[in-house]
């Protein structure tokens, strides 16, 4: 037992980290849009799906991966911008819950569109660098997981640079803190909103492309990933970049540890119970702003 313990634990950890990194990317997408507009975009999962499906169909058309990926991301960004321009923007001033329903409508629309553009089959993307497992401390890891870790890390660093060091990033943050004040100091709030949808679409697409070689992709793959990403964003604290990443990792690792040590039938339920327990003690998530309600 004890001889087995470490490799077993490592395996659970690695598996949880891979899944968690994907949740983190989806959660970051939720957070960016939330920051700009206080809206939860329930079509976030569809960005993930379109990213994966577009890359699959481009590489099936013999487009090299190095070109297919940026093309697919660009396509998803266009979808994100269109969503903001044609569905969210016209409903400006509507209540938050109305906007949520609009994004749910958009997610159903995009899923329906995907079944027409593509099909309802499962598709697989070739792993970026082969399928030969790598041994790590008695556990095994697919090269694709390394890509997931590396790209997630790079994105997190790039985002923190963007929001911390660039004028545009700071403008976006200012808008999230106080929209009116941001407007008064000359920030074009509408552009910020558009940009946030574009960015979160790109993040979703990248998540979808990274995971496609591991868990395949299909027209409704975004439903579960979107739900998990939302849970991760809430667990970490909405609007917090660090929170989204930590939330995703915690959720992923909690799931795989529960599957390994407690019950694989109830692993998702256990992860949710942990999320709820955190919320009961920290009502704004792990890293969320503890804002007072405006009267």
């Amino acid at each position: 037992m004890s001889a087995q313990f470490m490799p077993q634990f490592m395996q659970y950890l690695l598996s949880g980290l891979t899944v968690g990194a994907i949740y983190a990317l989806v959660a970051l997408g939720f957070s960016i849009i939330f920051n700009a507009s206080h809206v939860i975009n329930f079509a976030q999962g569809e960005f993930v799906m379109i990213g994966g499906m577009a890359t699959v169909s481009l590489s099936a058309a013999e487009v090299p991966l190095g070109l297919a990926i940026p093309l697919a991301v660009a396509a998803v960004v266009l979808v994100g911008l269109a969503l903001e321009k044609f569905a969210v923007e016209p409903a400006r001033g509507a209540s938050v819950i109305t906007l949520i329903i609009i994004t749910i409508g958009a997610s159903i629309f995009l899923r329906g569109l995907a079944t027409l553009v593509w099909d309802k089959q499962l598709h697989v993307l070739k792993a970026f660098s082969g399928d030969a497992p790598i041994a790590v401390a008695g556990a095994t890891l697919l090269p694709q997981s390394l890509w997931v870790f590396g790209i997630t890390l790079a994105i997190v660093l790039a985002l923190s640079w963007f929001f911390g060091r660039t004028l545009l990033g700071k403008a976006m943050l200012a808008t999230s803190h106080n929209r009116l004040a941001a407007q008064l100091v000359g920030i074009n709030v509408r552009h910020v909103l558009l940009l946030s949808y574009g960015m979160s679409a790109a993040l979703g697409a990248i998540a979808g492309i990274l995971i496609a070689p591991i868990s395949f992709t299909t027209y409704d793959v975004g439903v579960m990933l979107g739900l998990k990403g939302f849970a991760a964003a809430i667990l970490g604290g909405l609007g917090s970049g660090v929170g989204a990443v930590v939330g995703g990792i915690v959720l992923g690792v909690a799931e795989s540890m529960s599957a390994g040590y407690v019950s694989s039938a109830y692993k998702d339920a256990i992860a949710l119970v942990i999320t709820l327990a955190v919320l009961f003690f920290m009502p704004s998530g792990l890293f969320g702003k503890r804002g007072g309600e405006r009267v």
Binding site: A87, P90, A91, A94, T98, I101, I102, I104, G105, A106, S107, I108, F109, L110, R111, G112, L113, T115, L116
Partner: peptide, 14 residues
């Protein structure tokens, strides 16, 4: 069906 349903939902709420 799915597409039209989604579009109707969006349209009504917009």
């Amino acid at each position: 069906e799915m597409m039209v349903f989604g579009a109707l939902m969006m349209g009504t709420m917009i």
